[in-house]
């Protein structure tokens, strides 16, 4: 059996909207990836432990609440503590452009804006993993 790309789609924090996350999860599945979706309101601890146990190649964080600059550093810190900072982390949702640099400095590989075609995200992930 050939290697499959495995992705965790996670919703950190308290926002209650996951249509975007579900669309991405479905799109990546249609592109032949194995996608783990863990549902709403995940803590950084839950996200990192899921990523470790599932041994994913990529974590996609979807956030609309505005708490990204608070939650993402915690997630990145815990990934490092778990020796899994090799997992590529990407983000999407409502993230103002002013914050992109701060997130990239944290080690987040890409921040996708609303309206990004799924094919663009698929290409990015495939490039990142291979």
């Amino acid at each position: 059996m050939e290697k499959k790309i495995k992705v965790l789609i996670a919703k950190p924090g308290l926002d209650g909207h996951d249509r975007g996350a579900k669309v991405i999860a479905r799109g990546l599945k249609e592109a032949g990836m194995e996608v783990v979706y863990t549902g709403l309101r995940q803590t950084p601890e839950q996200i990192v432990r899921s990523a470790v146990q599932e041994d994913v190649d990529v974590i996609g964080l979807s956030i609309l609440s505005g708490a990204h600059t608070y939650l993402f550093p915690e997630i990145m810190k815990r990934l490092k503590e778990s020796n899994r900072d090799d997992i590529a982390v990407i983000a999407g949702g409502i993230i103002p452009e002013d914050d992109h640099k701060e997130l990239k400095d944290l080690g987040i590989k890409a921040v996708f804006q609303p309206g990004t075609p799924i094919s663009e995200i698929v290409d990015f992930i495939e490039n990142e993993v291979n």
């Binding site: 499959k4 032949g32 996608v35 863990t38 549902g39 839950q46 899921s50």
Partner: peptide, 28 residues
């Protein structure tokens, strides 16, 4: 999926209460 070869693994959604317990290992 027989068509794309991909899969949507969603069982963790209903197991959040045990997901961080050190006595449990969940693998989808």
């Amino acid at each position: 999926s027989h068509f794309s070869g991909g899969a949507l693994l969603g069982d963790r959604i209903r197991m959040n209460e045990i997901a961080t317990d050190s006595g449990v290992f969940i693998r989808s």
